[in-house]
Design a protein around this nucleic acid. Sequence first.
DNA 1: CGTGAGTTTGACCAGATGGTCAAATCAAGA
DNA 2: TCTTGATTTGACCATCTGGTCAAACTCACG
Lengths: 202, 202
Amino acid sequence: MPKDRAPTRIQKKNRAAILEAALNVFSAHGFRGATVDQIAAEAGLSKPNLLYYFPSKEAIHTALLSGLLDTWLAPLHDLDENGEPMEEILSYITRKLQMSRELPRESRLFANELVQGAPRIHDALSNDLKALVDQKAAVLTHWMDQGKIARLHPHHLIFSIWALTQHYADFDVQVRAILGDEDPFEGAAPFIDTLYRKLLTP
Amino acid sequence: MPKDRAPTRIQKKNRAAILEAALNVFSAHGFRGATVDQIAAEAGLSKPNLLYYFPSKEAIHTALLSGLLDTWLAPLHDLDENGEPMEEILSYITRKLQMSRELPRESRLFANELVQGAPRIHDALSNDLKALVDQKAAVLTHWMDQGKIARLHPHHLIFSIWALTQHYADFDVQVRAILGDEDPFEGAAPFIDTLYRKLLTP
DNA sequence: CGTGAGTTTGACCAGATGGTCAAATCAAGA
DNA sequence: TCTTGATTTGACCATCTGGTCAAACTCACG
């Protein structure tokens, strides 16, 4: 394992290649379904070489998840309590849907983890995520108190946004099997926009 | 393997125990993450004994999925084109949400399969499921033409119902981590009901 | 009972998989 | 160029896993 110094050119390149490959493989097959050989091959490294950069399969997975969690929650984080309520929420929704289109692997990585009980990120959920959601729920409640948006259960409002947007990334195969040639996001964007306009109008 | 005769008392009991155990294990760990030993142990059988009833791990999985698909789609199947539109749809939603509460393992079984690209049920999706959804989408469109419900993309309307209801089964850990003690379904039911009343009112 | 089909099991196997290690090779600064 | 740490690899290992098999056991029924 490399010492504690600044990462070399090669270290940077290989670590990045490994994480990129791991994202492909873990998101497509889940933790248990992914093999170190597969990740190594996709990263263009031999298995022992890969294990020179990360001590174990688990370590790769952990590095991936924690590295992506911030990216994943950024849109919610950006929800601005000083902005125009309806506009803020619709823009949050747009960004989430965009992430489902542009980062489906990340979405499925988390989906895989969650659907199997989140054995490796349970802490992050009940600490960091809960704190963030509670905070934003308070903002939503405040907007409701002001009569700016319809009164609804703020947590379930957030869940509904997650469900509606991530569905298109996580269950992509199903959506495409049913829609055929039609681009899922073409129809999803206006549908979801309409839905929340109607729902949130007081 | 037992002959082609009527199943004996023991066969019935053991097959049922195996499928029940398999549902537990597959829904919690996915196909690849589940082991035959685990299923056998949970069914109270030895591994060779289990493989006396099903020829392979794959066969158990297939039997489970195809056995449950009908159950899973029954609520949509029951959507009655001759019923009162709003009432029919809201009742469909209620039944779907109820399934998330009462049959979360089944939901996660399909979720696991779908999120990993549905390698084992791709055919069922683009044939049976697509046909059913297209047919019900036509019913929805008809109701929209009659002005009974708001005009929306029918397929995405169906997707939204799936997303909102199944979210509570598939991502149960996340929902509970955020809600704490609060019962997810207590809040979800009225939230979703309100949502669709607002959305569908012309 | 006795008997034949149905059921169960311990021992076993081959391949896959996560991980190790010493030796070989490479790269960059003195 | 030489040296030293960084990088890479082939060979190897223990364990896990899906699956097999022959032998043993049990059950239902004539």
